[in-house]
């Protein structure tokens, strides 16, 4: 019983993330000092903000009377172009991304293939879509073709990275079981890997279609076709009524696509 009493009244608190108290408090202090200096360099100019407020007030007022009709035709064709760009690039992106995604899964392929595919993914994911779009516009001229290429390139990195990660987490025993029957590599992939990642593949496709719709709207601003071009033109002409109509249409479209893709994804899981 003597030992039992020594076991009571012993203090306990969770171990800190960083053991050394000097390092821990030093890091916190450093972060606070950095934040203060960073804020002081921001050059915050109240007068400029006030002028900007006036302009944004006019823009926001325009939202109260958006003009869908005057340039209705342009808005419609621009929208259609954006949706078409998104659809084409989602499908094409998926087709090129599947082999890359399988090649980038460490548990399926030998090291050299893995490195090449991971390199492709890294390349695609390094640059923001707008930067790639500018590049493609220079290479292939203004218009939706440059936009579609941009979106395919972006979808490639997105699809193949997430697909590879999903493949790396599949149940290895199912793969063992199929291998043990004497199946070839392709048969193993089609019987043990594809069924495990299929819902995810469908989900990713719909999700990427979402993203591509939004991206397609932005890409027009750098001249890569779609509704963004129309928006850009109307803003340059201070035609805020049309601009607000375009923005409202984009919001509506994105919401519809997001809601329906979410609904389909839920059904697939």
């Amino acid at each position: 019983m003597a030992q039992a009493t020594t076991l009571s009244g012993r203090q306990w608190s969770p171990p800190p993330l960083i053991k050394n108290p000097w390092v821990r408090w030093g890091l916190i202090l450093g972060a606070v000092i950095y934040l203060i200096f960073a804020l002081s360099t921001l050059n915050f100019d109240p007068a400029r903000v006030a002028r900007g407020m006036q302009r944004s007030g006019r823009l926001l007022l325009a939202f109260l009377h958006p003009d869908f009709t005057t340039r209705g035709n342009l808005i419609f064709t621009g929208m259609l172009e954006s949706v078409t760009m998104a659809a084409i690039s989602t499908v094409a992106g998926f087709i090129v991304a599947v082999p890359v995604g399988f090649g980038a899964a460490r548990n399926l392929v030998p090291m050299p293939v893995y490195l090449v595919c991971r390199g492709l993914i890294a390349l695609s994911r390094t640059f923001q879509e707008v930067i790639i779009a500018i590049l493609f516009v220079v290479m292939f001229g203004f218009g939706p073709f440059a936009g579609v290429l941009t979106l395919i390139f972006g979808s490639l990195g997105f699809f193949s990275k997430l697909l590879a990660e999903d493949i790396e987490e599949i149940d290895a025993v199912q793969v063992e079981a199929i291998r043990s029957t004497g199946a070839s590599w392709l048969q193993m992939v089609s019987y043990a890997v594809v069924p495990q990642v299929l819902p995810r593949m469908i989900g990713l496709t719909l999700y990427r279609f979402d993203i591509n719709i939004r991206e397609a709207a932005v890409l027009g601003i750098v001249g890569a076709g779609g509704i963004g071009s129309t928006l850009n033109t109307s803003l340059r002409r201070y035609d805020y009524d049309t601009a607000s109509a375009i923005i409202l249409v984009i919001i509506a479209l994105v919401m519809v696509v997001e809601l329906s893709s979410g609904w389909i994804r839920k059904r697939v899981q």
């Binding site: 149940d171 025993v173 199912q174 063992e176 079981a177 199929i178 029957t181 004497g182 199946a183 070839s184 048969q187 019987y191 043990a192 069924p195 495990q196 299929l198 819902p199």
Partner: peptide, 23 residues
């Protein structure tokens, strides 16, 4: 196998037929 190691999202028949993949 211990945890059966069936391909969960395939049907019973597809799982059984997997035994003939080598042929």
């Amino acid at each position: 196998f211990q945890e059966y190691a069936l391909v969960e999202r395939l049907t019973v028949m597809e799982n059984v037929l997997a035994g003939q993949l080598g042929y």
